[in-house]
C-alpha cells in the first residue's frame, strides 16, 4: 500500500505555491495536513504527479479575530481549533466540532483549510462551513479571490477551487447577537467518519421567536447539504419542541441520502431527523441564553 511516484516541492510563499501549481498543471495537488490525501494516495485512488506542500509557507498558521469574524489560516490544525481560546470565544462551534474529527493524532496534522478543499461528504467541516456562511480566500495566478461556502462545494471530493489556486484562509463570521449554533453526529465508533452529522444555527428575535435558522448535514449524499427551508419554516415561530420536531423531520425528508456498507438511505434519513432535532434544540437553548444575558 504505497503511493505511486510523485514529485514534491515545499515553497516558502503563497506565490511560490501558486507558481508551482501553475507549472505542474492539472496533475498537481496541494498538500496541507495530508490526512485525507495521503491515504487516498496509499490506496492508489489518487495519483497526483506533483505535491505542493503549503506547510513551509510563513503566516498560514495564524488564527486572527477580524471584527466579529474569525480568520483561520490554511495550515491551522483541527487540534488547534479545539484548544485555541480565541476560537472558543469568537467561533465556539469550531471548537466544539474539532474533537469530532477523527482521532487526536490525525487532528494534530489535519487542517480546516485542507478539509474544506478536499470536500469529503462525510467530513465535518464542509457542513459547518455551509451552516456558518464561511468564506474562503484562494490565491491563483491572477491574484486572490473569495468563495462563499455556498459556492465552494461542487460534488464528491470536488470544489470550485481551480487546480492552480490554493486556499489560504477561512473567514468564519460571528453568529451575531441572540445567535446559537450546535453540532452533533452519529458514527459507528468514536472518531470514524460519521454516518450522518448535522449542524444547526438559530437567531432569535427580541421576543424569543425565531428570526433565522438553518441546518446542514453531512453523510447524506455526494456533498454536504445546507437546508435553509428550515429557517423559512421556523421564522416568526416560538421554537418549541413541536415546531423543532416538525421542521427537523421535514428537513430530513428533503434529503436524498445513499446506501452504503454501514447504513441504508432510510436509516440516514432517520438519523438526520434526530440530529436536526437535537442540534436545533441545543442551538435554540444557546440562543435563548444569549437573549437572557
Amino acid at each position: 500500500m504505497k503511493p505511486a511516484p510523485f514529485a514534491y516541492v515545499a515553497p516558502d510563499s503563497v506565490e511560490g505555491v501558486v507558481g508551482a501549481l501553475v507549472e505542474a498543471g492539472d496533475d498537481a495537488k496541494v498538500l496541507a495536513g495530508g490526512q485525507s490525501l495521503l491515504p487516498l494516495m496509499a490506496l492508489r485512488l489518487g495519483r497526483p504527479s506533483v505535491l505542493v506542500d503549503v506547510g513551509r509557507v510563513d503566516g498560514l498558521d495564524r488564527v486572527e479575530v477580524v471584527g466579529d469574524d474569525l480568520v483561520v489560516g490554511a495550515t491551522v490544525t483541527h487540534a488547534r481549533l479545539g484548544r485555541d481560546p480565541e476560537v472558543a470565544r469568537v467561533a465556539p462551534l469550531l471548537a466544539e466540532v474539532a474533537p469530532f474529527v477523527a482521532h487526536a493524532a490525525v487532528r494534530n496534522r489535519g487542517t480546516l483549510g485542507g478539509s474544506l478543499a478536499h470536500n469529503d461528504p462525510a467530513a465535518e467541516w464542509p457542513a459547518v462551513a455551509l451552516l456558518l456562511d464561511v468564506v474562503v480566500t484562494v490565491q491563483g495566478p491572477t491574484g486572490a479571490r473569495e468563495i462563499a461556502a455556498a459556492d465552494l462545494f461542487e460534488s464528491y471530493l470536488t470544489t470550485t477551487i481551480e487546480p492552480d489556486e490554493v486556499l489560504t484562509a477561512v473567514r468564519v463570521p460571528g453568529l451575531g447577537p441572540r445567535g446559537g449554533a450546535a453540532f452533533d453526529e452519529v458514527s459507528r465508533r468514536a472518531g470514524d467518519f460519521a454516518l450522518v452529522g448535522a449542524g444547526a444555527r438559530v437567531t432569535l428575535d427580541d421576543d424569543g421567536a425565531v428570526a433565522s435558522a438553518a441546518v446542514s448535514f453531512l453523510g447524506v449524499g455526494s456533498t454536504a447539504v445546507l437546508d435553509a427551508t428550515v429557517g423559512a419554516d421556523l421564522a416568526g415561530r416560538p421554537p418549541d419542541e413541536a415546531a423543532i420536531d416538525e421542521v427537523a423531520r421535514a428537513a430530513a425528508a428533503r434529503l436524498d441520502p445513499h446506501d452504503d456498507l454501514h447504513a441504508t438511505a432510510a436509516y440516514r434519513r432517520r438519523l438526520a431527523a434526530t440530529l436536526a432535532r437535537r442540534t436545533l434544540t441545543t442551538a435554540v437553548a444557546r440562543a435563548s441564553a444569549e437573549v437572557a444575558s
Binding site: 490506496l43 459507528r188 465508533r189 470514524d192 467518519f193 456498507l261
Partner: peptide
C-alpha cells in the same frame, strides 16, 4: 467481511472493516 451477492468484496480497508476501540 462484506461481499455482495456476486461475491464482489466490499470491505478492504479499516474504514470498512471496523474493530473495537477502547471506547467501544
Amino acid at each position: 467481511s462484506a461481499y455482495d451477492r456476486e461475491a464482489q468484496f466490499l470491505s478492504s480497508t479499516f474504514m470498512d472493516h471496523l474493530l473495537p476501540t477502547a471506547l467501544d
